[in-house]
Amino acid sequence: MARGMLDTAERMALLPGDVPRDAVIVTRNLHREYVMGTEVVRALNGVDITIRRNEFVAIMGPSGSGKSTLMNMIGCLDTPSEGEYWLNGHRVSELDDDDLARIRNKEIGFVFQTFNLLPRASALANVELPLVYAGVGGRERRERAETVLKQVGLGERMHHRPNELSGGQRQRVAVARALVNKPSILLADEPTGNLDSATSVEIMDLFETLHREGQTIILVTHEPDIAEHAKRQIILRDGKVASDGLTAEIHA
C-alpha cells in the first residue's frame, strides 16, 4: 500500500484540481450495479458528492433510493462498479479487501442502528476492539478507550456488558467505539432507529457536541426531524443526488 505511506497533504495533492483541499470524501460519477437473478439493479447511478472536513451531513432518501448502498460505499464496505471514490485522499475504488479493512479501521467510525456491539464483551472491550486491529498496545488501548467512554458519559459503566445497558447507553458505547481510533469520519446509519424519542434527542445532542469539537459526521437516515440536526442535507432519489443544500437554506 505505497499510497498509504504518503501523509494526508501529499495524498490530497493527487486529487483532481477542482476538489477543495479540505475534502474528506470525494465521489465522481459513482455507479453500483447488482445482478439480482436476470435483472440488473442500478443502486447508484452517477453520484457526485464532496464532503469537507468538519461537515455534519445527513444523507436522506426513501427506501430504494440507494442511500444504504452509498453508505456502504462511503464506509468502504463495498467498492463501486464504476466511478471513483477518494476518502481522505485514499483512492478507495482500487483497493482490495484487506486494504479496505485497514482503511475502515483507520478512517471510519461506524455507528449502526442495531448498535452491533459484541454481546459477550464489556463496554470497555468493545471500545478497545478497533485499537486491537490497529495494533495498539494493551495499556494505551485501555487508556484511550476509557477516555472516550468518559467523553460520551459512560465512565461509570464501562465494565458492564451490552445486555446490562439501556439502548441509549449501548449507542453511546457504539459512538465511543467509533471515535476511539480518531477516524476521519463518523458514519452513522439510522443511529436513533432503535431508540425512543427522548434518547434519540440525547444521541443527536452528543453528535452535535462532537461536531462542534471538529468531528466530521455523516448521518444516513430517512427521518426528516433527525436530519434537521445536520448542517447539510443530501437527498437521493433513484440512485442520484436529487438535492443537496444547507439545512438553514432549506428552511429559509
Partner: peptide, 16 residues
C-alpha cells in the same frame, strides 16, 4: 456471522 461482520467493519483483515 454477525460478530464476524462487526469485526470486519472495525478493521479485522482476512488473516485475523
Amino acid at each position: 456471522t454477525k460478530e464476524i461482520g462487526i469485526r470486519k467493519a472495525l478493521g479485522a483483515t482476512r488473516i485475523v
